[in-house]
Design a protein around this nucleic acid. Structure first.
Lengths: 341, 341
DNA sequence: TTGTACGCGTTATCAC
DNA sequence: GTGATAACGCGTACAA
């Protein structure tokens, strides 16, 4: 409020340097279009006044903000952190600033954040997953703000995406599980409603079962929030079943860590009595005991590719090309053959 | 670029509704200052055109953005996530939007991000820790942007802060450690350069030692990045010492988790052969084995208080009041008496 | 190479 | 209660 009342403007710099505002503006935006001596004078004035361009004015005049927005479901989780850090670094190198906000897994909140970022002049948006109301995409189109979906790869979708196929990635892991001999499979999934990544992972398990001649309907499925405690609760619940599942496949490493922790509390040995798998291969997966057999997602690579593609879109160099990132299985010790009972 | 070329403006809405732009503006900002019937007409036009106020223009005209910026050292880490999520929720309730960016623990980058956020019209800024170049505070003052320091409480500092005393918090834990009988104390600290939280934690250990009649100079100290692997490396290094330390106090839970993991790899039993402690009490601390004895930091409370105080400052209702958050010891199983050798 | 002057979309101060 | 209209600070044709 009343801020910048005293902040120096282009005008102040111009007066100080004895030139016009146009010249000052040029010094800042296309230094080569102004002669060396005047430029030095101007830069000195800029320095001594501590001038910082007013961003709002700049956006309004140029209709360009060099800002990219990203809306992630949560910051309370390492899943997105690493990819996003790389995304930001790459954007910086290309002259863009990243602004992040979190939707707390709430679609309405996400819609609001998207509107906020667009109104704020974001040149492009990074969104997580495809699943959202169509009106949002209409809105983005209307405002001609390019958007790129990440953490998901769905070439047949309208929106370009950078990521991997959750179905295939989890399917491969499920094949490994089934190949190890497991038949009674349980899964602790994240909430699938409005979350195409979670849906894809469930689908991947089911397809793998069907392919191996198992009845996908026999999959015991629990949906819960992506929190350690929730994973623990769900695991405890699964262990009351009779017959018990021989393997618990988790929607991500966080849930799996919770499951492992609960197993230890219950005195159930992993993987001797029950196997557990994860997804993401965050650091956590490596340090829990036993180490988590999981799907490795190259988050950094995804962040890098997303930055490349989205800036290309913003600059009109691409109409939106989907990029597929390869995941790979990461075998550790939490998966073994089922107990021979 | 060329964005919003087709986006509807106040003018379009005004024309559609058959009123002036002033009336449309009022409908949006002070609905009670306009008669019911016209308001309905206007809102209908807003709806049908899919109008979204242009933020840059609004900021420029009102000199107020209802935006708060936060610059955190990293997103690649759960430490800040929880407090920040609560901070954002509280801000939302008060009508503000939070924009986050990460400095990757780089002072120059932090400076740049601060300038960016200020130029962008942020009404206030949340910064982590006190340690930064004085010129930054000068800059903020010049632009009359209130700033609040979090994750640190230093009432004697110029800047108001919301947080806890890292010195005292770690000091209490160190007293617990010493009280358990430990004399050969090692510490794996985060990089202390430019990081007053890390410095405070080291200082806390040293003071506790001195108070207990131990020579603080005997503290074996390793500084490293806040990463799991770095914690593991540092722990391995400490275990080569002779005589070995009987306890390894870590600068945060992430480092401690790395230490624990390395101990298991080396076949060193915790806490029987060596004790380990952490700091922060993130979820990780609970699920590693053995559970981490650590300092519990009420991140949510900190986020809440920070939001309250910063908005008060922005609205001119407070000149900047520091708030002290109480941490508490969280005893689990990674700390025990030293082995009686 | 540099300066003049207009427009970007809002809010806010006036009159009406 | 509502409508003109002047800012807000910057970029950029266009002119010099």
């Amino acid at each position: 409020m009343g801020k910048n009342r005293s902040a120096p403007t282009l005008n102040d710099v111009a007066r100080e340097a004895g030139v016009s505002t146009a010249t000052v503006s040029r010094c800042l935006n296309s230094p080569d279009r102004v002669i060396e001596t005047t430029r030095q004078r101007v830069m000195q004035a800029v320095e001594s006044l501590g001038y910082t361009p007013n961003f709002a004015a700049r956006v309004m005049a140029a209709n360009r903000s060099y800002t990219i927005g990203a809306i992630i479901p949560t910051m309370d989780n390492a899943i997105f952190a690493r990819g996003l850090q790389e995304f930001q670094d790459q954007l910086r190198q290309r002259g863009y600033t990243l602004l992040v906000s979190s939707s707390a897994y709430d679609p309405e909140m996400e819609r609001e954040q998207i509107r906020t970022l667009v109104a704020r002049g974001a040149d492009g948006l990074l969104l997580i997953g495809h699943a959202r109301d169509a009106s949002i995409y209409t809105f983005l189109e209307q405002h001609q703000v390019p958007s790129l979906v990440a953490w998901s790869y769905t070439p047949e979708a309208q929106q370009p995406s950078v990521g991997f196929s959750n179905i295939e990635a989890m399917g491969e892991l499920a094949q490994l599980v089934i190949g190890a001999g497991h038949r009674r499979i349980a899964m602790i999934s994240g909430q699938t409603s409005g979350n195409d990544r979670a849906q894809g992972r469930v689908e991947g398990v089911k397809r793998a079962m069907a392919q191996s001649g198992l009845d996908a309907a026999t999959l015991t499925l629990i949906e819960t929030d992506y929190e350690i405690e929730k994973g623990a609760d769900a695991f405890a619940q699964l262990m009351t079943l009779s017959p018990r599942p021989t393997v618990v496949m988790c929607g991500n490493d966080v849930l799996a860590a919770g499951a492992l922790s609960e197993a230890r509390r219950l005195g159930i040995k992993v993987p001797e009595q029950v196997s557990v798998t994860g997804f993401d291969d965050i650091e956590l997966a490596e340090i829990v005991s036993p180490g988590l057999t999981t799907v490795h997602v190259p988050h950094r690579e995804m962040g890098r590719e997303a930055a490349r593609e989205l800036t290309a879109m913003v600059e009109g160099k691409s109409a939106g090309q989907s990029v597929c990132i390869k995941t790979r299985l990461m075998a550790r010790h939490s998966l073994a053959e089922p107990p021979c009972q």
